[in-house]
Simulated assay, not measured.
Amino acid sequence: MVLAMKVPGSIPGLFRQIAQFTTRRSSSPLFFDNVTIENAMTEEEVCNQHLIGYDLHRAGWAGVSFRAEKERLSFAVSYLHDSLGDLACMALSLHKGAVTAEAVFMDEPGEVILMTTGTKDVLQFELREYRDWASWGMMALEDHKVVARGEIARDALVRNIHAILERIYLEVGLARYRELWVEHEFPLQDYERLSIALHKGR
């Protein structure tokens, strides 16, 4: 079904409309172990088929989870790194056909880095866990433990990340996000570009 929309006076307003029309639903909610969730995630985003789950918690902290065979691995995420910005950049790059992309999720201490590679529709992913901040040069990038690896469809990962961005944009908003994430603003520009690209591809 094609929906005709009158373009509002502001660009964010347009994307709020697109987001409301393009949200998809699927299975059941995801719960992080020992973590309080402030806002319910969309069903599409948290279905176990999806690689990534991401949610904001108290100021300066978020939680990220990853599909790993028969379970989901959960990690704390600190405001010290712009992890949501990394995800937005990853999705946009992969949608444009990038061969490699990565996102850093920094804890205090330690971090996990999601690496993706692939030239076609199916990507290989690897989740690397570090004892310290390798992304800040505190230890060698080679000194890590692989805690999950597998394959995922390029389009599925892009839409998974878009669902995360969409929910936070609609439910948390730009001002509240900035308050919670302290050092970094919501990646609005990449979210808008990704929304346009996915909307055109429908």
Rank of each mutant, 00 (worst) to 15 (best):
M1C: 04
M1S: 13
M1H: 12
M5F: 12
P8G: 08
Q17T: 13
Q17E: 13
T23A: 15
R25L: 11
S26H: 10
P29R: 15
P29T: 10
F31Y: 15
D33F: 13
N48V: 11
H50K: 15
I52T: 08
D55E: 13
L56I: 12
A62W: 01
G63Y: 10
R67N: 08
K70R: 12
F75Q: 03
D82W: 04
G85S: 01
L87G: 04
L94I: 02
K96F: 05
K96H: 12
T100K: 15
V104L: 02
F105C: 02
E108W: 05
L114M: 05
L114E: 06
L123S: 09
L127G: 07
E129N: 02
R131Q: 09
D132A: 07
W133T: 00
M139L: 00
A140E: 02
D143K: 00
D143S: 10
D143I: 02
V146W: 04
E151W: 04
V158M: 08
A163D: 02
L165P: 05
E166L: 11
G173W: 05
A175H: 09
A175S: 09
L180H: 12
W181Q: 15
W181M: 11
F186P: 13
S195A: 13
A197S: 14
L198G: 12
L198T: 10
